[in-house]
Design a binder for these strands. Structure first.
Length: 111
DNA sequence: CCATTGACGAAGA
DNA sequence: TTCTTCGCCAATG
């Protein structure tokens, strides 16, 4: 299985995820595009599952800003995000228009 | 080698 | 708006 931070496509995804700053999140589809479609959104999920502790996998959410993990992992993910200042609305979703990470500012403007 | 399975997402119905 | 289908492709058994 792809070793995190070292080999192929998974390593590239992990490197990308490590660039996401604290308090920001990215979506699976967004990461998929950032690696030029070399891995589909589902593939990003595999990479996250294989991620080592040095990868901030918790900053990856689905396109609605929701958590796609389950049970304990989901609780951990939400806890980690809240701990770094990412707010959740009443639906348990992150406001992507505010917290979405934009690599290389194309034209982003914080809140 | 082959079938199944996703921590997803967009498009139809 | 909610549900279903399909694409996508590495990983697993």
């Amino acid at each position: 299985m792809a070793k995190p931070g070292g080999d192929g496509i998974f390593g590239q995804v992990h490197a990308l995820v490590r660039r996401i700053p604290r308090g920001r999140v990215a979506t699976y589809g967004q990461l998929s595009e950032l690696i030029d479609g070399r891995l589909t959104p589902v593939g990003i999920g595999w990479a996250m599952r294989a991620a080592t502790p040095d990868v901030p996998w918790h900053r990856v959410v689905n396109t609605r800003g929701g958590i796609s993990t389950a049970f304990e992992v989901a609780e951990q993910q939400r806890g980690l995000l809240e701990a770094e200042g990412v707010p959740f609305d009443e639906h348990g979703l992150v406001d992507l228009s505010r917290a979405r990470w934009k690599p290389r500012g194309k034209r982003e403007r914080r809140l």
